[in-house]
């Protein structure tokens, strides 16, 4: 009987945790898409929570410093880590994405201070939503330079 009392308590807590996870997932989960997938789905996913990864095109970065409005474009990079590895690593994939003019691209708008790590060939992971105008409105920007912690051996050293 005593056991039951504690069992009931345990089940209640477990139920509460499952409910918390389930309801929070429903309210906050984001589809993780590549630029290609995003363009493919287009207007079907307008106003959904999305997370998109892409390679930053340095020339497209514009910053309206008076209003803190940042616009830039990203080019498609594969979303799968194994695929990225197979293509020669993140730095190489980002580089190829940026120099290839036939890659699909996406325009991004973000309001806020310009992140220090935003630059050509950085990987941007953006959380936000796709507007009806086809522009991605990012609420959060996560930037990853493959060179951020450990620089790959640079071109003048590695010979391909």
């Amino acid at each position: 009987m005593q056991i039951n009392k504690f069992m009931v308590g345990g089940v209640l807590i477990l139920g509460a945790v499952v409910f918390l996870i389930w309801s929070s997932l429903n309210a906050t989960s984001e589809y993780f898409l590549t630029v290609n997938e995003l363009n493919e789905k287009g207007s079907n996913i307008v106003d959904r929570n999305l997370r998109v990864s892409g390679a930053v095109l340095g020339d497209s970065i514009q910053y309206d410093a008076a209003n803190l409005i940042l616009t830039f474009e990203v080019a498609h990079v594969p979303g799968d880590n194994a695929e990225i590895e197979a293509l020669g690593g993140l730095a190489e994939v980002l580089h190829q994405a940026v120099i290839d003019p036939s890659r699909e691209r996406m325009k991004v708008v973000y309001e806020g201070p310009m992140p220090d790590l935003l630059r050509n060939e950085a990987q941007a992971i953006m959380t936000g939503h796709l507007g009806a105008d086809g522009i991605f409105y990012a609420d959060e920007l996560l930037l990853k330079c493959p060179t951020k912690y450990e620089e790959a051996v640079p071109e003048q050293v590695v010979n391909k």
Binding site: A16, L20, I21, S23, S24, L25, A27, T28, S29, E30, Y31, F32, L33, R51, G79, T127, E140
Partner: peptide, 26 residues
């Protein structure tokens, strides 16, 4: 979750700070 969702639905679904705040707050 991103790994699991990809495995089962083929679609990678991620969660951000709002998920953690909401679920761990209580």
């Amino acid at each position: 979750y991103p790994l699991i969702s990809e495995l089962f639905s083929g679609q990678k679904i991620t969660v951000g700070p709002p998920f953690y705040e909401r679920a761990t707050g209580p």
